[in-house]
């Protein structure tokens, strides 16, 4: 179970660009340092225009020197957290949490396959270092668009050598999930962090292999979908409302701001509490959650409003409100 995290102040000590759009931040927390475990994240208070919000970023490396390192990809199309982070200069005062972990690495398995896509390298990098340190048997498969997008690859290779294998889109390289999973020792585990397309492909291949579901571990990050992020309209006939979800806000946030009573918990597409019924859509629902199964997503009866979006059209939904 992940421990309750505590908020505290922190100071940005330095920044360093790992790639043209991935920046490493070194943050010194005030008070006692709580050491992160592999797979951990910290929460950072961000300012989006007038609005205070929170983003979670995976911790990069073991951080044994008392500084938290996080890497943030600049995503101009997204909700604004990354642009805020990129506006910071050393010396900036931050509000940060102690580490939490939704993506624990279990030691003692016969073998590990680590699969990272793009910025998903951050927890995978930390896991690879921990496994190398523990003398475990493992391989890392790291997929990126191009050579210039490879963050942390050189640093990782220093620790793990030939156990790191790169797959670059620009070279036409693709991870063959089925054959990679087939090579994994029985009882071995697959850890995945990357865009939803990669995660879904890995999940399907894992299912085809017949291996136990609990030995596939993954972390979701709700920013990525199969379609580009764009604005869309949401009609709610029951409430006689129509709202527009801008690219930099989630549907859940937009509904909440508009005064629609909502419940939610994880807000990253895992728990399913914020899901609403779809009445109709003239676009395509970009299901970005991991709560619904493939079959349920294909049925399009509901969507997780915290992460999922609509591409190329608008959507009409129903809420749980029965007073109106």
């Amino acid at each position: 179970m992940s421990k309750q995290v505590e908020w505290r102040k922190g100071v940005l000590r330095s920044v360093r660009d790992l790639t043209p759009d991935i920046r490493l931040f070194e943050i010194e927390p005030e008070g006692e340092f709580v050491a992160p475990t592999p797979g951990s994240h910290i929460n950072v208070g961000v300012q989006i225009g007038e609005r205070a919000d929170v983003r979670s970023y995976s911790v990069v490396g073991p951080c044994t020197d008392g500084l938290y390192r996080i890497a943030v990809k600049r995503l101009p199309e997204s909700r604004g957290g990354s642009l805020y982070m990129w506006s910071l200069v050393p010396g900036a005062q931050l509000s940060i949490s102690t580490p939490g972990n939704h993506f624990d690495l279990s030691l003692g398995r016969p073998e590990y396959l680590l699969l990272a896509g793009g910025i998903g390298i951050t927890p995978i990098y930390t896991m690879a270092l921990a496994l190398a340190h523990a003398g475990a048997k493992f391989r890392v498969l790291y997929a990126c668009r191009s050579r210039q997008d490879m963050a942390l690859a050189d640093a990782m290779r220093e620790h793990v050598g030939e156990r790191l294998q790169m797959f670059l889109d620009e070279e036409g390289a693709r991870v063959d999930h089925d054959s990679e999973i087939a090579r994994l020792a029985p009882g071995g585990e697959l850890y995945v962090c990357g865009p939803i397309g990669m995660l879904e492909a890995a999940k399907r291949a894992w299912q085809r292999s017949g291996r136990p579901v609990d030995q596939l571990r993954f972390e979701t990050f709700g920013n990525s979908g199969r379609f580009a992020t764009e604005a869309f309209k949401v009609k709610i006939p029951r409430l006689g409302m129509e709202v527009e979800v801008p690219p930099n806000k989630t549907m859940l946030e937009t509904l909440e701001t508009a005064g629609v009573a909502m419940i939610s918990d994880c807000r990253r597409g895992e728990c399913g509490l914020c899901a609403l019924y779809i009445i109709e859509t003239n676009g395509t629902v970009d299901h970005r959650d991991v709560f619904f199964s493939d079959e349920e997503k294909a049925e399009n009866r509901k969507l997780c409003t915290c992460v999922s979006r609509v591409a190329g059209g608008d959507i009409t939904i129903d809420t749980a409100d029965r007073a109106a």
Binding site: M1, S106, E270, G272, V290, F292, E295
Partner: peptide, 26 residues
């Protein structure tokens, strides 16, 4: 929960929340 502390069944849903684990002690 299995012996590694990972959730392998949740009622009334088709998938399992990936963060659902309890700690397994050595």
């Amino acid at each position: 929960f299995n012996a590694a502390g990972r959730c392998t069944y949740m009622p009334a849903q088709k998938t399992i929340n990936p963060s659902a684990c309890v700690r397994a002690y050595p």
